[in-house]
Write a protein that binds this DNA or RNA. Sequence first.
DNA 1: CTGAAAGCGCTTACAG
DNA 2: CTGAAAGCGCTTACAG
Lengths: 335, 335
Amino acid sequence: MQVTIYDIAKMAGVSASTVSRVVNNKSTVNAKTRARILKLLAEHNYVPNESARELVKQSSRLIGVLISDIRTTHHTNGIYFIEKELSANGYTCLIHNTGRDENNWVAYFQSLSQRKIEALILVGSIYQTDLVREAISLYLPSIPVVISNGYMNGENIYGILSDEQGGVTECVSLLAAKGRKHPAFLMNQVTPSNEKKKLGFEEGMARFFPEMPVHTSICGNEIDTIAAETRTLLQRHPEIDSLIYSEDLLAVVGLRTLADLGRRVPEDMMVIGINNSNYAKLSIPTLTSLDNMLYDVSITAARNVLSLLSGQRVSRKMLICTEIVERQSTRKESE
Amino acid sequence: MQVTIYDIAKMAGVSASTVSRVVNNKSTVNAKTRARILKLLAEHNYVPNESARELVKQSSRLIGVLISDIRTTHHTNGIYFIEKELSANGYTCLIHNTGRDENNWVAYFQSLSQRKIEALILVGSIYQTDLVREAISLYLPSIPVVISNGYMNGENIYGILSDEQGGVTECVSLLAAKGRKHPAFLMNQVTPSNEKKKLGFEEGMARFFPEMPVHTSICGNEIDTIAAETRTLLQRHPEIDSLIYSEDLLAVVGLRTLADLGRRVPEDMMVIGINNSNYAKLSIPTLTSLDNMLYDVSITAARNVLSLLSGQRVSRKMLICTEIVERQSTRKESE
DNA sequence: CTGAAAGCGCTTACAG
DNA sequence: CTGAAAGCGCTTACAG
């Protein structure tokens, strides 16, 4: 059985109130008594019962973090920073792996509400749906909710976005500057974030290749489907001379596929990824990638939550600039 | 303010006990009353207060999960399976990112004890230390503790290990069969798991290359240090003709470094990684890798926790076999 | 500086 | 089938 405040009180010959005051470092306790209690506390390895504390204080110091797939490196990198910042401020993260199917999400909102979380961070634009908005207004109507790389309307909802749309337009601009004629865009799945990237691509095409047809395509998350979709696209449109993928991982599969087809990168085909991940740094050839500033987005999400919890004003929607990191996959011989 | 069982009771004209019975689906409630209460519950969006429940039931349905760096893909893949299995059984995971420095770990054990977790999973052999053993006996002396890919003595400690030692010995055997003469082994850092891999390497050398010197080396976790250490090793021992890295990620950096040096893989140099990760499948050339059966280890850790929580016997130490997945980086032309 | 008492929201024998 | 009561471990005005 666990040692309670009452056990210690009995041993010290004082009341539970006094022990509580010592545990919580309240000022008004006689120095000698305090010392005696402190010693007892340490000896018996006292640890306060958090449930009891929460119940009376009506505060859990718990922050919910929802992620659709904890295996996504890009997202776990973000969570790493979020967790660090939050736990440095005395909060505990409740990280949940919700899956990609929104029909299974409600249970998580209920569970988080039951645990009395004090704020919620949604990692990824995938949570930008009406169903989520409803669940929030039903189960978490009065705590701050911050979306990392997304935004929704809502009394208590805040968003931090990476300007991927503008970034992809710049990628198209880069390809134009390199003398490419027929860029194409591939994305793994339809998410709000990918829709924005696609929009950025279309904008870039309209601006830099006004006469050209716009090729975009969805290639899934599996190595096989990505490779197959890449092959199909190139077969159908042999004129394509440059590819932008919605994620580095896809682009790396693309590099493999091109190698298998005997196409040289960057000579025959230029390739650009997004995320500026390890994959981009380690591939052969190394991969030009749009850095969507994950660190900044994540850390800002965490800091905004902390600000909101301490009652400060925070802007509802922030946009963070992206940056192209150029590597071999778009570098011409002469450079 | 939140709706309590008392609010509902008042509205329904019954006692809190009855409402509690309905909420918890206890048998003995009049059908009509139950229906009325159920309706009220739904209308008012009642969610039980978990702290209050925990306090009276002395059970949190919380399971702690400690990981040294949540950015390590290999570990998050494992956690993905663990979380899925555990939450399917009604438990909530408290995932903490402890960092690699064991001096910061005690706080996590205290916090988990405070939250009254019912079991603990340690992900990674890195937690196999005396300090951890002490913290467990101090703060979590009576709940099941399961180490994923590790083992320690302790009343309440259980381990599931991947037989990486035997696996690496087989890798050496494979290199011998391919006619290689001078294998070397590189690991990122000193962990119990890496020590075992090294032992397996030394065993393999003793068995298949009894006359040869044994080259092992530590290369760190950063791309730069891995590349530098690889270069140094090859400069110092130009006779080396095959490399085993303690992780795929390192091996992929190795492949890049070899490409930069103009060494052909597998002709001039064979390369083997460990983990059988995406990196191995996507690199150019594709990478032969020791599959340490992460899925099996993780899922077994989760299942063992569930078994222990339901009072079943579980073996203290389980060993799971590994398997080499051969790809281009060790395949001879003729094959 | 300190203690008695009430209360946080819930569950569960116990009595009826 | 149902209610009154006690209790889980803690905090915090309030009175002294």
